[in-house]
Amino acid sequence: MEFVDQNPIGKSSRSNPATYLKAYDEIRKLMAAQQASKINGYKASHFSFNIDGGRCEECLGEGTVKVEMQFMADIVLTCESCHGKRFKNDILDVKYKGNNIHDILEMTIEQAIEFFASDATNTEKRIVNKLQPLADVGLGYIKMGQSSSTLSGGESQRVKLASFLAKEKNEPTLFIFDEPTTGLHFNDIKKLLKAFDALIKKGHSLVIVEHNMEIIKSADWVIDLGPEGGDKGGYLVFEGKPEDLVNVDASYTARFLKPYLQ
């Protein structure tokens, strides 16, 4: 069983969507394979901001420096050494199709997919395959290197969903989602539903705690609890198919769901 909540995807501020889905591992290998890297003896590890080698030693790959204030909130400043680019200048001189590692991390997921899809080598294909699930769950707008600490709860939840979609083989699993549509645009909800369908086609089962009518309408089975809140709620009002729920007068959900099924 997997509980897909809205907690951050990583404990470190250096974690990001690309690292979480292992796409960054392939990108580092690609950068290490460039002629400039071979001449200078750079390995994939030189393009990591988690270990010494190629990262900026002033900010330790963060791109920012935190100034602790005794009686005020800490101040976060752009690193004066790397100017927010996170790597040493020598590493930034290595380019793939005119872009260095900082340029790639500044791309959105959709831009990166288009960028890497233009070549048909196995490495580029693996990168695209690992990034595509992020676009499929409506996260094509976030940046490759965007810190996990800046993602909203709903975005973090969808990054986790994308990681499960990216797995080629896994055992049938029961997934529990806690209000995954929070803050989503209508078009993104459609993408989310497609992602749910993809999980189901892989043999998984989903339990979704949700108030969004589009999600409820699409469910195979609905459990409606109520009828009120607090000590007047928590009772089983209905259990069954969405089209049968609309006939239950005691259900508030039924009143709002009915227009979606007409």
Rank of each mutant, 00 (worst) to 15 (best):
M1P: 07
M1Q: 04
F3L: 15
N7E: 09
K11I: 00
S12R: 14
S12D: 05
S15L: 06
N16G: 03
P17L: 03
Y20A: 05
Y20G: 01
K22D: 13
A23N: 05
Y24A: 05
I27R: 00
I27T: 07
I27V: 14
K29P: 06
K29C: 09
M31T: 14
A32E: 12
Q34I: 13
Q35Y: 13
K38H: 05
N40V: 01
A44S: 15
F47D: 11
S48N: 10
G54L: 09
R55I: 14
E58N: 12
L60S: 13
T64L: 08
E68A: 02
E68T: 12
E68W: 05
M72F: 15
M72Y: 09
I75Y: 00
V76P: 00
V76W: 00
L77K: 07
L77E: 01
L77T: 01
T78G: 01
E80N: 06
C82A: 08
G84C: 04
N89K: 15
D93V: 04
D93H: 09
V94K: 11
Y96M: 11
K97Q: 12
K97R: 13
N100A: 12
H102A: 11
D103L: 06
E106C: 11
I109F: 03
A112Y: 06
D119W: 13
A120N: 13
A120S: 14
T121A: 08
N122Y: 08
E124Q: 15
R126Y: 08
R126W: 06
R126T: 11
I127L: 12
K130E: 03
Q132C: 06
P133D: 07
L134T: 08
G138Q: 02
L139G: 07
Y141D: 15
L151W: 10
R158Y: 07
K160G: 03
K160A: 04
A162C: 11
S163M: 11
L165Q: 12
L165I: 13
L165E: 14
E171S: 14
P172L: 08
P172I: 02
F175H: 12
F177C: 10
F177R: 06
E179Q: 12
P180K: 08
T181S: 14
T181P: 02
L184C: 02
D188K: 01
D188G: 04
K191H: 13
K191L: 14
L192S: 09
L193S: 08
L193D: 02
F196Y: 14
F196N: 10
D197W: 02
K201H: 14
K202N: 10
G203L: 10
S205W: 08
L206R: 11
M213I: 05
M213F: 04
E214K: 07
I215M: 13
I216P: 04
D220F: 01
P227M: 01
E228F: 01
G230C: 03
D231G: 00
D231Q: 06
G233F: 03
G234W: 03
Y235A: 06
Y235F: 08
Y235M: 05
Y235T: 01
V237H: 02
V237L: 01
E239V: 10
G240F: 08
K241C: 01
P242F: 02
E243L: 03
V246H: 01
N247E: 14
N247Y: 08
V248Y: 00
D249L: 00
S251C: 02
S251K: 06
F256N: 07
P259E: 00
P259N: 10
P259Q: 09
Y260C: 01
Q262C: 07
